[in-house]
């Protein structure tokens, strides 16, 4: 539960931005405070507010300088910063994933970095729920914290120019899912056949920060059966 008075620092972040840095000792608290402030700002309808990016322990607010200022937005932040996170029941999403081989070309590397076998990495990665900390780019990518990875995974020395959509990749202790053919620097250990980002749906991704993802290993033969938009998938 977030503390009522959240310790934080506000930085000016360019001529039309503010970065809020939550500084309390507990990681879980910092994340909850950042998400609560992000939600409160998004629903505040404050004039001049352009966008809000809330992440692990930060909130980046951008504003239109003709309608707002650093001062006016900081005042709003101070007012909203004690908002309690809206109670929300987390949804658990089961996401099929084919690990290794052509689906996860960096599985061997990750296993080596962890001092594990590829099979152990798969068991670890699919053995517990991952929590969606925030949704970022590219295109609705969920940024996930989850099972304790034994070693911080370094990024690719040369980022890939084009990730195959559905790629599930690791960096540090985190996982993300690349929903789109963007460049990317994380180590790809598997791929999901399910299309999570779907413009025909509103919102186009089914998950929210705080929801959980459980990866369900599938074999290559099962790939086609799962290759469809998320809303058509029943797991």
């Amino acid at each position: 539960m977030a503390k009522l008075i959240a310790e934080h620092i506000c930085h000016e972040y360019g001529d039309s931005g503010i970065l809020v840095d939550f500084t309390s000792a507990d990681y879980e608290d910092r994340w909850q405070q950042a998400q609560a402030l992000g939600n409160a700002l998004r629903s505040s309808a404050e004039p001049g507010l352009v966008d809000v990016v809330s992440t692990y322990q930060n909130v980046f607010v951008s504003f239109n300088q003709l309608l707002a200022s650093h001062k006016s937005i900081m005042d709003v932040i101070e007012k909203l910063i004690e908002s309690k996170p809206a109670p929300r029941v987390a949804t658990v999403f089961n996401i099929p994933i084919a690990y290794g081989q052509e689906y996860g070309p960096h599985l061997e590397f990750v296993a080596k970095a962890c001092g594990l076998t590829p099979k152990q990495v798969i068991e670890l990665h699919s053995g517990e729920d991952w929590t969606i900390r925030f949704i970022g780019s590219p295109v609705g990518a969920p940024f996930l914290d989850g099972p304790k990875i034994p070693a911080s995974i370094p990024r690719l020395t040369t980022p890939l120019a084009r990730m195959i959509p559905g790629s599930v990749a690791l960096s540090g202790f985190q996982t993300i899912i690349y929903n789109a053919p963007s460049p990317g620097g994380w180590q790809v250990i598997g791929r999901t056949p399910v299309q999570l980002f779907d413009l025909k749906q509103n919102p186009p991704v089914p998950y929210h920060p705080g929801d959980r993802i459980r990866f369900k290993p599938i074999s290559q033969r099962e790939w086609d059966a799962w290759n469809k938009p998320f809303h058509e998938v029943r797991l």
Binding site: D51, S62, I135, P138, G140, P204, V205
Partner: peptide, 8 residues
């Protein structure tokens, strides 16, 4: 603009 919540 304003679509950070869905990662755009």
């Amino acid at each position: 603009s304003g679509l950070a919540a869905i990662g755009i």
